[in-house]
């Protein structure tokens, strides 16, 4: 087997991996914020419902959620299944939005109420307080847990092969049938590089915000 074939196949798989990662991040990050507002709502029914939802999503395996989302519609009400890739994105987005929402909530609730009140007595509007005072403190607080979660997301993308989405591990695994194990190691290297880059980016961001406490 020529190395170029292996490389091309792995790169294609890596492309899919990256796509799952980027789309999930782009959707789950804002959705998580909406969910966190729900879980902090003063309207009790909304708060309780949101927290129950978050509890269920965080308390059960992502793999199970993917299986339900992909096979569920067909089995439960003989509907048409989502395409594999869309099912993957849907499951990942819901799952990560739940995790992100808890991180956001922790970050927002962690900013002392006195910060908000100090802004108020200085005649600031709520919007000014949010953008000029609260936001940066929240970002600083959530950066370490977010970077952990995002690195986990990179690795979790490999779960997509459960419903036969051809991400990098699945592509690498396909060479096993031909007696080749090295592609799996190469796949591992892709992950290491990807996460290495992310770690550098997050490290830089954390350093940038280290000037205050």
């Amino acid at each position: 087997m020529p190395l170029s074939t292996i490389a091309a196949t792995l790169l294609r798989g890596f492309g899919t991996t990256c796509l799952i990662f980027i789309i999930t991040l782009a959707l789950a990050a804002p959705l998580g914020l909406v969910v966190s507002f729900g879980s902090m709502s003063r309207f009790a029914p909304l708060r309780i419902l949101t927290r129950a939802f978050v509890w269920i999503i965080r308390g059960s395996p992502l793999m199970l959620q993917m299986i339900i989302i992909y096979y569920g519609p067909g089995l439960l009400w003989s509907g048409t299944a989502l395409p594999r890739f869309s099912a993957t994105i849907t499951a990942f987005t819901i799952n990560y939005a739940a995790y992100f929402s808890e991180i956001y909530r922790g970050g927002i609730e962690g900013v002392p109420r006195g910060q908000y009140e100090a802004g108020l007595v200085l005649g600031m509007t709520k919007t000014q307080i949010f953008f000029k005072i609260t936001l940066l403190q929240v970002v600083k607080r959530i950066l370490p847990p977010m970077s952990n979660e995002i690195i986990t997301l990179v690795k979790d993308t490999s779960l997509a092969r459960i419903i036969a989405v051809r991400e990098i591990i699945m592509e690498a695994y396909s060479f096993m049938a031909k007696g080749l194990i090295s592609p799996l190691f190469y796949a591992g290297v892709f992950y290491l590089i990807f996460n290495g880059v992310l770690q550098v980016i997050f490290g830089k961001a954390e350093k940038k915000l280290a000037y205050f406490r």
Binding site: G114, Q115, A118, V121, L122, G123, M124
Partner: peptide, 27 residues
């Protein structure tokens, strides 16, 4: 009214000078 809190409540991401100027600049 102005209020000085028991626990100061300075804005941690701003310098002493910026803490004092922030509200005025917004106003």
């Amino acid at each position: 009214f102005g209020l000085v809190f028991q626990s100061f409540n300075l804005f941690p991401q701003y310098t002493a000078l910026e803490n004092v100027t922030l509200a005025g600049r917004l106003l």
